[in-house]
């Protein structure tokens, strides 16, 4: 078997190994051996790639807008919230007012 014959069947060999003749060529031929080593190395390295990127906040904004337009979600009260929870600033204001009222009530008492 020569290099051309070997490389013609290489996609199959990479997947499921070769027959005796192909394995013999692989042992004897540095060029084909390097090639197989590289292709396996690329496949191994690809498996190690992790999801590294986060989408920008506008993706979530777009999802909210679409859901509201389709009537699937209620309009948000504040930017960034779909529904349900109050936004952080409004919660802070509420807590401040509550604390002030509590202090005021304590002073009057």
């Amino acid at each position: 078997m020569n290099c051309a014959e070997f490389q013609k069947v290489l996609p199959y060999i990479i997947e499921s190994g070769g027959n005796a003749e192909e394995e013999a060529h692989l042992r004897e031929c540095d060029v084909c051996s390097d090639l197989v080593q590289d292709l396996r190395y690329i496949a191994e390295q690809a498996k190690l790639l992790l999801p590294m990127h986060d989408p920008s906040p506008k993706v979530w904004d777009g999802i909210q807008e679409n859901l509201q337009r389709e009537g699937l979600a209620k309009p948000a009260r504040a930017r960034g919230r779909l529904l349900g929870f109050p936004s952080l600033p409004s919660l802070s204001i509420f807590l401040l007012l509550f604390a002030a009222a509590a202090v005021g009530f304590g002073l009057l008492k």
């Binding site: 290099c3 051309a4 490389q7 540095d30 060029v31 390097d34 090639l35 080593q37 590289d38 190395y41 690329i42």
Partner: peptide
Amino acid sequence: DIGARDNVL
């Protein structure tokens, strides 16, 4: 690639 040996990756 036939006949062209190069360093492996």
